[in-house]
Design a protein around this nucleic acid. Sequence first.
DNA 1: AACAGGGGCAACCGCTTGCCG
DNA 2: TCGGCAAGCGGTTGCCCCTGT
Length: 416
Amino acid sequence: MGHHCCSKQKVKRGLWSPEEDEKLVHYISEHGHSCWSSVPKHAGLQRCGKSCRLRWINYLRPDLKRGTFSEQEERTIIDVHRILGNRWAQIAKHLPGRTDNEVKNFWNSCIKKKLIAQGLDPKTHNLLPASKTLLHGVPAANPSGNNNSNNNLAHFHSNGGAAAATAATTPFTISSPSKAAAAFEVAPPAMYDVVVPNHHATGGMMMGHDHNHHVAAAAAAAMARAGYHPYAENGNGGGVLMSFRDQNGGGVVHAAASMDFMNGSSSSSSMEHHGGGGGMAANGNGFSASMAAAFMDEEAAMWATAVETPVSMAGLGGMDLPHQHQQQQLLVQESAAVVGPRPPTATLMMHGGGGAGAMVDKGVVEMVDVSSEVYGGGAGAGAGATAFDLDLMVESCGMFGAGGGNAGIEQLQWDC
DNA sequence: AACAGGGGCAACCGCTTGCCG
DNA sequence: TCGGCAAGCGGTTGCCCCTGT
C-alpha cells in the first residue's frame, strides 16, 4: 500500500537491508536531505521519502547513541515525562543521541512497567488508586474513579520533586513530620493535603505571587501568611519557598529565591543547606536538579491553563525575570490555547534552576548563568550532569533529568 | 529439539503543523 | 485566505529474538 505521500510509487516496505542503509547514508552524507521526497529517487532506493527520513532519523544518523539507557537517562525521561507527558520528541531533546522513537519504546517497554510496579500511574505519575488506598487507608480519592490528574490532586514526587498542584478549587495542605500540618490557603477555598513522609526528601516548592499581578501564585504567599516556612519572607505574595528535607543527608536544604513580581524584577536566589550533602537533592532523593531548570517558555506555561488561576509552583531559585509579568501572561495565554485539555482550574509554572537563571524578555527566553548545576551536575545538583544543548533548554523549558534517584512517592493525603 | 508466549524494537500509519504559492 | 505539499510527531503494528516449557 505504501504511504499516501508515495502511493504512486512502487516502494519497498519492511526492514531495511544493509545495502539500502548504505545507499541512504552515502547519499545523505554527500547531498544532505533538503527534500526527503526526492531522496529515495536520487539515492536509488525503492522507498518512500518518509521511510527514508525515519530510517535516517531513528537509525542511521551518525550522532545517535545506541545501546541501553543509563539510569540517568531513565530518570530524565521520567522527570520530563511527568511534565510534558507523551511528547516524545520533546523528551528526546533532553537526551542527546536518543530519538523520540527510542524514548517512546523504552518508556512503553520498561519505564512504564517500573512505574506501575511502584504503584504509579505512568500517565499521570500519581499513585494508582489501589496505592492510595493502601497507603492512606482512604477510599479512592476520586468519586468518579478517574485517576486523571486533571482532577483534584496534588502530587509531590520525590524522584524529581516536581510539585504539581492542580485544581485550585480543591483544598490542600502541606505537612511534614517535622512540622505540623500547616494548612494554608492557596486560592480560597483551595486546599490540599500533601503529607511528606520522613524517609523521603521533599521538594516543597512554592512561588508566591499576587493574584492581581497576572501570574498568580498564591500558594507561597499563602504559605508565607501561614508562616509555614521560615523563608516565607515575602508576605505580599512574592518570594519562592523551598524546603528540602534531606534525611539521608541529615539536613534540610532551604532554598529561597527572592523575586519581586510586584516590581517585575527579581534578585538572585539564595540557598542554604543546613547540614547534609552538598545542596539540593544531594542525596539523590529530593527535588532533582533536572526539575530545577527554567520553566519560562511555552512548555513551562503549558502547564498553566488559566491565567487567572492563582496557583503556581516554583522550581528552584536563581531567576532573573525582567518584564516577566507580561511575558508570563502571554505564555500562559498562548499555552492555554494550545495545550488543550489541561486542568481548567490549575496553573502550574515552574521556574528557575539550581544556580541558574531564566530570563524572559521580549518574548525571548534565555538561560543565563548556565552552570553545571543547571545540567544536574555540580555540588548543588546531586546526580551527574547531562549535557544539554542550550537551544533545547530554551526551546523546551529545560527539564533536566539529573536529579536524585527514584526514592519513591511521598504520601498523599487525599481530602477529596 | 520443538513450540509458544512475551518483550523489545524497527517501521508504518495517520493526523497535525508549517511553509509556500 | 485557501489548498497543496513536506515534515514532524505520536500511536500502533508486526517482526524477530529470547526464554520457558
